[in-house]
Design a protein around this nucleic acid. Structure first.
Lengths: 276, 276
DNA sequence: AAGCTCTGATACCTACCGGGTATTAGGCTT
DNA sequence: AAGCCTAATACCCGGTAGGTATCAGAGCTT
């Protein structure tokens, strides 16, 4: 049972994503025939049919869907190995900390002030931090429980806070002193926005589809949606926004997360001294 | 930045484990010169020195240690991709459940009785379950919190129980009705056994080094060590052993763990019906 | 100190295979 | 039926992984 090569996995992922040998080959920078041959050979080595070739392109089999998911995580792990090794060889390496754009400003500022060593800050979109950690683009992330997927990471809690609803200033709800989750959950004219899943598709529902924080901020200002977020997220305090405490929303904990083995001991020790 | 190939990672892991190019080459089934060349090329591609070659063999650099750890997880992920894809293509595939040898007999029996679909049971040594899940040899594991490393897995609790101390029948402690952690922790003539870490080395301490459950059972029977384990672990009830409740030991939860995406919904649903 | 031995590195060759172009085969549209 | 789009096949070429032979240097041995 000879092992797979990452080249084969990259090729398969390209085909599985494009569902078209020609386009996949173009994306990979090779010609179509070698790609067809590589996939056929991969299927023979695994003893499994991965794609049903149709008159118009191709379609994934059940086994193909499994391999697509597994191949992506495997390729992430290989890329992480290369990135982390390169960085380990650089004596000047700064740690890379990844955080959602626009979240936890004060805490991040305070954290950077406390640290002796230089830290590079990488900003990403909501839900992307885990991926950056897994593929080695970052060493440590600022994440939020219970929102983010913390599976596979070591963590250190920094700060716990309650949540507020951000509603359009012009909306009747904006006049309330406080709200409950029940009041906030089913406001017909302010449906909750829908975020893409890991595979890029959107869940069903009445709310608008959003992909970035700035889209969402815009939609709130336009009176199209509302959201419930930690009280300290000042990025949301536009003039058109009003923050109303939600008394029964679960507390949110801001924390540091890192893959087991990351060289973050001194950072975590410094962070633990922060008082919030 | 061209990606690494798994062949290069396999080669590096072999050299890093053997710390000797000749032996590593033999293990890989190739000659020494191509291996030397492959490692040199890997170092050039990463721009990092991985090994310090000495008069007698080789030694890992800091970057080399990073790559060894990362490469092992990456190779596990690749192997898992192949195994899971092969199994996904087999319509007859039974789920593979892995568990520590000798743990949770009754619960496992009850679980298998409840399941409609066939399940293959794989036994492994203590602490090995996570590895079997990660490299695709198993689909789901019986594990124990807070003992096992659950990072990266979804879980479903099955059963919570208290712990007992297993002591040699001939030892004075065996006469006690109950014990506390303080009484059990520092018994000079019964030092706690030491398990190997993930890298195979042992922590310091006075206790005996053990690698398997049967070694440990033997050592207890010989009056050389004691241990604290869940009350139901009947594998330990030899005539030479006495179980004494430890009143303040943390409760242990037996649970199912599986990598996100594993096809275990129906198994977990069946398991949830078990009453323990 | 000379030589032996063990290490990894170098030189050079071969053969496999990954990738290219040209073409075929089949299904749908028109 | 002609034309097109798809993926598969046929065939060739070149890079490179792997082989053998050899080198180079650092301990030992004597």
């Amino acid at each position: 049972m000879d092992d797979l090569e990452t080249r084969e996995l990259r090729y398969f992922v390209a085909v599985a994503e494009e569902l078209h040998f020609g386009r996949a080959a173009t994306r990979l920078g090779i010609a179509q025939p070698p790609l067809s041959r590589a996939i056929t050979q991969l299927e023979r080595r695994l003893g499994v049919r991965l794609l049903d070739r149709d008159r118009r392109g191709a379609e994934l089999t059940d086994a193909g869907r499994v391999l697509l998911r597994e191949a992506r995580t495997a390729l992430d792990a290989v890329a992480a190995a290369a990135r982390r090794t390169r960085r380990a060889g650089d004596p000047e390496r700064p740690l890379v900390l990844v955080t959602k754009a626009g979240a936890s400003h004060e805490l991040l500022r305070a954290l950077l002030d406390v640290l002796a060593d230089p830290v590079e800050v990488l900003l990403c979109e909501v839900g992307e931090q885990a991926h950056r950690l897994r593929d080695g683009q970052a060493d440590v992330a600022l994440m939020h429980r219970p929102f983010d997927d913390l599976a596979g990471f070591d963590t250190a809690d920094l700060h716990t806070e309650s949540q507020v609803a951000i509603v359009p200033a012009a909306h009747p709800l904006a006049a309330s002193e406080s709200l409950t989750m029940a009041e906030v959950s089913h406001v017909p004219d302010l449906p909750i926005a829908r975020w893409p899943r890991l595979d890029g598709t959107y869940p069903d529902g009445p709310g608008p589809e959003v992909r970035t924080q700035s889209q969402l901020a815009q939609l709130v200002a336009l009176g199209r949606t509302l959201l419930v977020i930690p009280a300290s997220s000042r990025a949301w305090q536009w003039p058109e926004h009003v923050a109303v405490p939600v008394v029964d929303a679960p507390d949110v904990t801001t924390l540091l997360a890192w893959p087991p083995g990351a060289p973050v001991e001194s950072l975590v020790r410094s962070a633990a001294k922060l008082s919030f």
